[in-house]
């Protein structure tokens, strides 16, 4: 496992997103209502960049004429052909088994924690005072 510091926490306030390139991968990091999510950025359909997609909600229907709108902001829609993905699972709404984004573990960590331990030397300007967003890749 590899851990990557991808942003200062202050760079990703609620509603913000950032496209990062770490470990050979393009990953979109999103702050949805205070929760962080990290997903592979390339749409598995035709390759659109999810970082430019719209966050929307889950629309469902029990029968024609009845609609339910739920989980606003938790569905990421590709800016090209409109494929929709659940930010919590990476699974697509239409074809969840075959079409999915990879989900990465992402967390907010204090600079004090990051400068401790065996990897201090790897770091750049991580300071004790700030919080950081850390993404894990395999």
């Amino acid at each position: 496992m590899q851990r990557h510091v991808v942003a200062k926490a202050a760079e990703l306030p609620v509603g913000a997103r950032k496209l990062v390139h770490v470990g050979g991968r393009d990953i979109v990091v999103l702050n949805v209502k205070g929760e962080l999510f990290a997903l592979s950025d390339k749409c598995p359909h035709k390759g659109g960049s999810l970082s430019r997609g719209k966050l929307t909600g889950a629309v469902s229907s029990r029968e024609p004429g009845s609609y339910t709108y739920a989980r606003p902001g938790e569905i990421l829609r590709c800016p090209w052909h409109g494929w929709e993905f659940d930010v919590r699972t990476g699974k697509s709404v239409c074809d969840p088994r075959r079409m999915r984004l990879f989900c990465y573990a992402v967390s907010r960590e204090a600079g004090t924690k990051l400068v401790e331990g065996p990897y201090t030397a790897e770091l750049f300007a991580v300071t004790l005072e700030d919080d950081y967003v850390v993404v894990e890749t395999q």
């Binding site: 590899q2 851990r3 770490v22 790897e122 770091l123």
Partner: peptide, 18 residues
């Protein structure tokens, strides 16, 4: 475990990568 720092931002304008 290793820790590294993202220094290269990916294309932010949706241009084709690779």
């Amino acid at each position: 475990m290793m820790l590294d720092v993202a220094t290269q931002p990916a294309d932010a304008d949706g241009t084709a990568r690779g």
